[in-house]
Amino acid sequence: MSLYEEIGGEPAVNAAVDIFYRKVLKDDRIKRFFDGVDMDRQAAKQKAFLTMAFGGPHNYTGEDMRRGHAHLVAQGLNDSHFDAVMEHIGATLTELNVPGNLIAQAAAIAESTRNDVLGR
């Protein structure tokens, strides 16, 4: 069984996305990066990102990640902000009672995007 199936597939992503996004928007360290963005469009992007982190179907390339975050890097997006998001992914999955070994696998996938997201 794939990681995506083990975590629970699309229903699991649907359960996770609001919890995750709420944590992100409440976090004083990173919420300014979301000022003025449309909630619905952003929620769809968060869902695509979590789907990828959960090992699910996606079409994102490193280049997409770079392009999508370049304007935020220009505003000062750095490792500390990426770390904050990683924290929220872990906390969200813990809240949903996902076993630790699966959380570690999802975290590793998310971690693999760090250099692209930060434009390095």
Binding site: A44, K45, K47, A48, T51, G56, P57, H58, N59, Y60
Partner: peptide, 9 residues
């Protein structure tokens, strides 16, 4: 189109 996976709408 973007994600081709039924996610991004």
């Amino acid at each position: 189109s973007s994600c081709h996976s039924g996610i991004c709408q």
